[in-house]
């Protein structure tokens, strides 16, 4: 009986039948197995220890990430407060002349939609609506930069076209460097009219049941040095003006259809007899039922001239 035959069987008593040579083989086989087990046990123990250490490091990194996330959240909350502070709040002079309502919603804590009310050097009132490319903190920083540039611009010129051209010339170098641009919709109000400059922005005037859509073919701010066009439209008591960014009209329903300017304009037209805040609410209600999810920052301003 050989060692291999005995090992394949189930009768240990037969070991006594082994030759001296087979017993030697058995001895070294046993020692070899023990040695392998020792080495493998040490290897797996070290691997297991390493796994425990890795989990401990992972836990620590998770805690660090949570701390970093908390810091970022706090910074973003502060940034949100700062950005809100940069938007207009009380407008008694505007309210005396216009009845208006504003909806402004950023996708994240801070965003790239910016609107403001201005008093120009010639005494007239104006509204600017801008949509900075991108989202989040970078867009918010550009928004603050544009606001500062606009304040300086207002001290130099007062016609809408001059303001937008001046602003574009002052900012195009920086905006190109940081690869950002902004749509612009700038409207200055006269006694019975308004003049506007529109580069990629959106505006609609409802007057006597007719819809007049803004010509928005001028260039965005920050792309290149270009002359801008200025247009004038009548704006009298009862007329309704809506200014907005693309966030609302480019939002989609579950079938992938855009909300569309046509739908929004028709809604403003159909409700033009209502107070401005109710027109705005009708628009928001309709939009809320339509869209699947917000995909961009949204700004919508509805404005009506008060009776003199």
């Amino acid at each position: 009986m050989t060692l291999d035959e005995i090992l394949q069987g189930r009768d240990p008593d037969r070991l006594s039948e082994l030759s001296r040579e087979d017993l030697h083989r058995l001895f070294w086989m046993y020692k070899g197995l023990v040695k392998r087990v020792e080495r493998d046990t040490a290897y797996w123990q070290a691997t297991n220890d390493n796994l425990r250490t890795a989990y401990e490091r992972l836990d620590e990194q998770e805690r660090e990430l949570a701390r970093a996330y908390q810091t970022i959240r706090q910074d973003l909350e502060i940034a949100q407060q700062v950005q809100h502070a940069l938007l207009p709040k009380d407008h008694p002079e505007m309210l005396a002349r216009f009845e208006f309502s504003v909806y402004h919603k950023q996708m994240t804590e801070v965003g790239g939609d910016y609107y403001d009310f201005y008093r120009l050097r010639d005494g007239s009132h104006a509204i600017g609506v801008f949509d900075i490319s991108g989202h989040g903190v970078s867009a918010a920083l550009i928004m603050a930069y544009l606001k500062a540039q606009l304040v300086q611009t207002m001290e130099q010129v007062s016609r809408p076209r001059d303001i937008v051209e001046y602003l574009n010339n002052a900012t195009v170098g920086f905006l190109r460097e940081v690869r950002r641009y902004a749509t612009v919709n700038f409207v200055a109000f006269g006694e019975r009219t308004f003049r506007y400059v529109c580069g990629g922005g959106y505006g609609v005037l409802v007057r006597g049941g007719e819809v007049h859509t803004f010509n928005k073919g001028d260039p965005f701010i920050g792309l290149r040095r270009r002359a801008y066009s200025e247009y004038e439209l009548p704006f009298e008591t009862g007329d309704v003006l809506a200014l907005y960014t693309d966030g609302m009209v480019e939002a989609q329903d579950s079938a992938g259809a855009d909300y569309s300017t046509r739908r929004l304009h028709e809604l403003v037209r159909a409700n033009a007899e209502l107070p401005a805040n109710q027109i705005l609410q009708r628009c928001l209600d309709d939009y809320g039922q339509f869209r699947r999810v917000d995909a961009d920052d949204i700004t919508l301003i509805v404005l009506r001239r008060r009776a003199a």
Partner: peptide
């Protein structure tokens, strides 16, 4: 640098 107890790992690497 990857292991606290690296000797069994080095041995296994050689094998």
């Amino acid at each position: 640098e990857s292991y606290a107890n690296v000797e069994p790992i080095r041995l296994k690497l050689g094998i």
